[in-house]
């Protein structure tokens, strides 16, 4: 088979056909995978909510702007038999070692922390990724803390949270995210009589 000559028409035609076929293929794959990807993300969010609030039978979602930070936080109010049992706050911090860290923080209606799980991060594997529940029990220390009494900062910054060995920046960032969640929670839930309305 002879090679096609590198004439102007041949080059333009070839590139056009190659890119057209590639675009068509990608569009098809995107359409097929769109549903499952959204389902996987939604399942991860739901799982995180059930991990950080007590048993509930009804969920209501609202969004609030934090005092500090560019993006709104997602508040998931969990009700059991019509009574508020907890609020799962999807929070974030941009102080991480590499990129944004997103986490789900659960509060009891009185402001104590139920638990914290990470949603997304790009921290160093083996060091910063100890914020993950499966990798280490570091994040268990937040359980039951009341941020109005305990300073959610690493001990190096004058707080009462133990940092992660060799990953103080990640631990500091995680505390920042939790504080952002609590401050917003305390503005909108504690000071509003604990109701979502």
């Amino acid at each position: 088979m002879a090679k096609k000559e590198s004439s102007f028409v041949n080059m333009v035609m070839t590139l056009m056909v190659v890119t057209a076929v590639a675009s068509f293929t990608l569009a098809s794959v995107y359409n097929i995978t769109k549903g499952p990807i959204e389902m996987a993300r939604e399942a991860a969010r739901q799982l995180a909510i059930t991990m950080v609030v007590p048993d509930f039978d009804e969920l209501m979602t609202r969004r609030y702007m934090p005092a500090v930070g560019r993006d709104s936080l997602e508040f998931n109010y969990a009700y059991k038999n019509g009574e508020l049992v907890g609020v799962a706050v999807a929070t974030y911090t941009d102080m991480g070692f590499s990129g944004r860290i997103r986490a789900m923080v659960g509060f009891y209606p009185d402001g104590r922390i139920v638990d914290v799980v990470h949603l997304e991060h790009q921290e160093t594997p083996g060091l910063g990724d100890k914020i993950e529940k499966g990798k280490s029990d570091w994040s268990d220390q937040f359980r039951g803390l009341d941020p109005s009494e305990t300073v959610i900062k690493v001990t190096k910054d004058g707080g009462q949270v133990d940092a992660i060995t060799a990953a103080t920046i990640t631990a500091r960032a995680y505390c920042d995210g939790i504080r952002r969640a609590y401050d917003t929670f305390s503005n909108h839930v504690l000071n509003d009589g604990g109701s979502a309305e």
């Binding site: 096609k4 080059m11 590139l15 590639a22």
Partner: peptide, 16 residues
């Protein structure tokens, strides 16, 4: 390979 003119082979490969 026989349909790709030499001068545009790299861009074509990269798109693929």
């Amino acid at each position: 390979k026989s349909q790709i003119p030499d001068k545009v082979r790299i861009p074509s490969f990269i798109v693929i």
